[in-house]
Amino acid sequence: MAAAATPPGATTMLEARNVQAWLRPRPAAALHQVGPATANKLRTYGLHTIGDIADAPVPTLVCLFGASTGRSLHAHAHAHGQDLRTVQTQPAPKSMSAERTFDHDVLDPAEHRRTLLDLTDELGARLRDEQQATGNLTISVRYTDRTGSTRSRTLPEPTAHTRPLTTTAYELYDLLGLQRARVRAISLRAQDLRPATEATQPSKPSATATAPATAPAPSGPPPSPQPATGPLAENPTIKRCWQPAVSRSRPTDPMHLMAYWIRSVCV
C-alpha cells in the first residue's frame, strides 16, 4: 500500500508508531479485497476511509455487508498494514472438481442425488486435505445428446464441510428441473478457493441442550449497544442496523426473553 502511494523515484519511510496515523486517512478502496462495488457501497454509508471502517462496530459491518465480508473488512482495517495470511510456497489451486460418468442413461432423480452426495463427500475430503475452503459451487449435467446444463451459486460462508456442500448441490440440482432427463454425467466444481481458516466450523451439540426449560431468566434490563459515532451516526440505514428495537414490548418468558436480547442487537 505504501509503494502504491509513493511516486516514481521517491521513497516512503514508515516507522511503527506512525503506521496507524498513515493508514487511517487512506481511501477504503486501498484495503485488500475491496473492489469497486464494495467501495461504492462503503461510500453510500459514509465509510470513505480506512479509519471510518475501523471505527465501525463489527455488527454494523456484518449487517450491511454480510458475515464474511463484514468480518473481513473489520480485520483488514485493524491489521495496521500487516498481512497475517500464511505464506504459500506452492501456488494454491484456483478450483477443484469431481465428476461421475454413467455407462448408461440415468433417469432416476434418486440416483442423481446419491451421485451428488458422493461428489460432495469427495470434494469436502479433498478440500480438507488441502486445507482449502470454497466460496462457490457449480453443478454441470451432461445429457445423452451431449448437451448440458450448468448452475452456480456463491456460498453464504466459505466452507470445506460436506453437509453445506451437499445442501447447496441439492439446491442447484433442483434449479435444473430435469424431470426424467437422460443424464450421462454429473460434475461439481468448487471455485473461489481460499485458506481453510476462513471456512465455517461444523456445528457442535450444545452443552446445555439438556438443561431444564425453567432455567432462571437473566436479571436486569437487556444490554444497550454502544451508539455509533462519526459518519455512522449520520446514516439512517446504519442506525437501523445498530440501534435496538426499543419499541417492542419486553417478554417475560425465559426462552422468548433470550430471543429478545438477541434481536435487540441488530434489527
Rank of each mutant, 00 (worst) to 15 (best):
S140L: 15
R182D: 09
Y143K: 06
P254H: 04
P225I: 01
R114I: 10
H76F: 14
L193I: 10
G46C: 08
Y260F: 08
P225R: 10
L232V: 01
R240S: 07
A37Q: 15
R194E: 15
L23F: 04
R142V: 14
R184T: 11
L23P: 01
A133F: 06
R146D: 11
E234I: 00
R24G: 01
A3C: 14
L31D: 00
L127W: 03
R240G: 00
Q82N: 10
R113H: 12
S264L: 01
T229E: 12
L31S: 02
P231C: 06
Q191M: 10
R182L: 15
D52A: 04
S203Q: 12
V106H: 05
H161P: 04
L137G: 09
L119E: 07
L165G: 02
T86A: 15
R250A: 07
H78C: 07
R85P: 06
L73W: 04
M1Y: 08
Q90D: 15
P36A: 15
V265T: 05
I50P: 00
A228S: 08
V58P: 00
A213N: 05
Q226Y: 02
V141H: 02
S224W: 03
D121H: 14
T229A: 04
T11C: 12
S206M: 04
G46W: 02
P223F: 05
R184V: 13
D174T: 15
A110E: 11
D118A: 14
T150W: 08
G220S: 02
R85M: 12
V34Y: 01
T60G: 06
A92N: 15
E111D: 12
S152C: 14
T101I: 13
P8H: 01
H80V: 08
P221W: 07
L119S: 07
S219H: 07
L155N: 01
Q33F: 05
V19Q: 03
A79N: 08
T159L: 04
D121F: 05
E99R: 15
L172Y: 07
H32Q: 13
V87A: 14
S152I: 13
A213H: 11
G135P: 07
A213F: 03
P93Q: 07
H78D: 10
S224I: 09
R248E: 08
L73I: 13
P202E: 11
A39N: 13
S249H: 06
S219A: 09
I238Y: 01
S68P: 00
H256I: 03
V183I: 13
L176F: 09
G124L: 03
R184L: 14
P156K: 06
Q131V: 11
T147V: 03
M13H: 09
R100S: 06
Q82H: 14
H76I: 13
G220P: 00
S97N: 12
A196T: 05
L14G: 04
L123F: 10
A181I: 05
T154E: 13
S149L: 14
Q132A: 10
A77S: 10
G9W: 05
P57L: 01
N235Y: 00
R128L: 10
D145G: 06
P93R: 04
L23K: 03
A259H: 05
H104N: 03
L119Q: 04
A56I: 08
T120C: 12
D174A: 15
S249R: 08
S72I: 02
A5Q: 13
